[in-house]
Design a protein around this nucleic acid. Structure first.
Lengths: 252, 252
DNA sequence: CGGTAGTTTGAACTACGTCAAGGGTCGTGG
DNA sequence: CCACGACCCTTGACGTAGTTCAAACTACCG
């Protein structure tokens, strides 16, 4: 009685197409670690400086080398942060969810984006000019410290990614990535711990520095072992421990 | 008439063994982007909170999972930031030089270091407890913003590293890394643009997710082409353009 | 000038990339 | 509601870049 016709278990929340109402805006600003220390009235003032903007699935929010003048906070949807590699291949750096930020923090003019942001699903984002954001930082020093901590966490996470990319086998890299995604996007469902985002083999390949074919082979293998359940653009984890123990193996 | 007996061109500056005098302390604190906005008297106050500590080449400054309670700023020497991978292999995340920082920014107790810091050469570091550092941040809000910008730059750099690690061939990865190191540590010498640090093949391998053997083969090849000069633990670039053009090749 | 640690080179093996063809899933329009 | 077409995924066969193991070499330090 689980699913009748629709096989995909993926269902990214979505209220109004591309728009988020005032209530959501406040909820998001509150949720963002940045402004957690602000009073209600300060938050109202800060809210004035943000604009909201909607994007369709697949749309580029900004592209590599565009002039970098805005900071974005995701209210709804999923955003891919990527860099382009030689031969048309892309590298997927991060998959961002509501409450997370991306774009430019620095207010030097003539600066450009070092990466590309693409909406993976329909997205509503709160935007602010870097200029206005720097004003907030100067006005509320506690915010600067919180932002510093947030970026610091991101840096740790990037370092961990570097470590994992340096791990030899594709098997391990994919195993690691599935666990990482599950921690961030996992939702318990009848099929298992579902990674709640439309995740193609190509995406997985771009995240693990491998090819879609290799990703597919390994995903199939994991499925045969009974560790995961999978379909078109979705993966659910059924045996987290098995994946984790794979990572610790010291293949001599 | 260049070199007589000593073949190694590497000569990392070093005044007193493991100790840096007061003049150097001030010079370093000034040099660090963190405190660039502070007045002379503020800097004197900040200086009080720092202690200096010396480390020998090869010594661990802190180790993975040690309790994280200090922030370090390098006054002299080179520091390797690394993570351990399965099978005793390490991943070299960053090679840090005077003026750069590492360690813990966050003041949550019970936090631990996510990586290991090792002195590559003799090092003198300025240390401060994270607790004291947080006091500085609260006292001088402009510092928090500067630190935020510094970490933000590091994150960009880490993202770029991820992109480069995802590039297929070892040839390209090593070529990229040599250029990156030359930009940071390069000194014009008779042998070419010398990367001023003791750089073993193992280090290069740990930075590019490959093996010492592969690194050696590629280094030899570059040398045969006349693009670099090299010896035991050193590399100097002679044809930067050649290395750069290698990166842009779209090997079909 | 000898020893140690770093480096080079060789040869065998293999995981993974590449190219290519076939099969499944979804959503759009008749 | 069904059927077509697009897109995504799977699987196979093949070639090769890079790892691994091992042995010889050489730059450097004391």
């Amino acid at each position: 009685m689980e699913h009748k016709r629709r096989k995909t278990p993926i269902q990214v929340e979505r209220t109004e197409p591309h728009l988020c109402d005032l209530k959501l805006r406040f909820k998001i600003l509150r949720m963002t670690p940045f402004f957690s220390s602000l009073s209600e009235s300060d938050l109202v003032a800060v809210n004035q400086l943000f604009h909201e903007k909607g994007f369709e699935a697949g749309e580029y929010i900004y592209f590599l080398e565009d002039p970098a003048q805005h900071l974005f906070i995701i209210a709804e949807g999923r955003v891919k942060l990527l860099r382009h590699a030689v031969g048309g291949k892309d590298v997927l750096l991060e998959l961002l969810v509501p409450g997370e930020f991306f774009g430019s923090l620095s207010d030097q003019d003539n600066s450009i984006y070092p990466d590309t942001a693409q909406a993976q699903t329909a997205v509503c984002a709160l935007t602010i000019s870097t200029e206005d954001f720097r004003k907030i930082l100067k006005m509320y020093p506690s915010v600067a410290i919180t932002v510093m901590d947030a970026i610091s966490d991101r840096l740790q996470s990037a370092h961990e990614t570097i470590r994992q990319l340096s791990m030899q086998s594709a098997e391990k890299k994919i195993s690691y990535m599935l666990l990482k995604l599950a921690r961030k996007l996992g939702q318990p469902q009848s099929v298992g711990l579902l990674i709640q985002t439309p995740l193609a083999r190509d995406d997985l390949a771009e995240m693990t520095a491998t090819t879609p074919e290799t990703a597919s082979r390994i995903i199939s293998q994991f499925q045969k072992e009974g560790w995961i359940a999978t379909g078109r653009q979705w993966i659910a984890i059924q045996d987290e421990a098995a994946l984790r123990s794979l990572l610790e193996e010291d293949n001599l």
